[in-house]
Design a protein around this nucleic acid. Sequence first.
DNA 1: GCTTTATGACCAATCTAATGAACAAAACTA
DNA 2: TAGTTTTGTTCATTAGATTGGTCATAAAGC
Lengths: 101, 101
Amino acid sequence: MTRQALTMLGKLIRIGRAERGLTAQELADRAGISRTTLSSIEKGAPGPEIGTVFEVVSLVGLRLFESDERMLQVYNFRLDEKLTLLPKSVRHAVKEVDDDF
Amino acid sequence: MTRQALTMLGKLIRIGRAERGLTAQELADRAGISRTTLSSIEKGAPGPEIGTVFEVVSLVGLRLFESDERMLQVYNFRLDEKLTLLPKSVRHAVKEVDDDF
DNA sequence: GCTTTATGACCAATCTAATGAACAAAACTA
DNA sequence: TAGTTTTGTTCATTAGATTGGTCATAAAGC
């Protein structure tokens, strides 16, 4: 499933790049990476750094979270609220949890 | 914006992990990575490999594309169709494109 | 309160990705 | 078709992440 998401993301990037009329070299330059790395990303390789992938995603206009920049800030804030309400560390009872599956 | 998406994803993972009652060590073990790396991921660092991040995302039950596994396959197929319709390479006219911004 | 456990941070050694160059093949244009 | 550009791929080197260990702090449970 991870693999599938990755290849899908790669295809989305490839399509987005084509729609914007960018060559691989051009997009790589704008993202500050090599064409080789961009090729890996579009291929859906698991290796590339998530930061560079997200940068490329942003450059081709993809929205991973289906929300725009402003929404990200707001949502981020709400996540912080949720985080403060949560216990700071996960603690196990004496008996092990058995939610393995 | 890339940075923001990364920190947000990290928080989502952290929350998801807490909701599932997993310690950092446990989640790291399941993902096959070290606790140090998981820490980086939850911190929203750009360095970690996208493959491992997606694996963690999947382990805590997050849905990046707001779709389940079956939807991924279908969507993937439709992306392939779109890809075949697209020109195989982006070609520039003699004159440079001037969509720089 | 005390004890135990989880987390955050840092480190050197190791492992792996990123790079840039080069080449071949494919694809677009004239 | 000929010629040019884009892309796919490989490879050695460079750069940077991952690891496993340890310590200190903090938080949860008793």
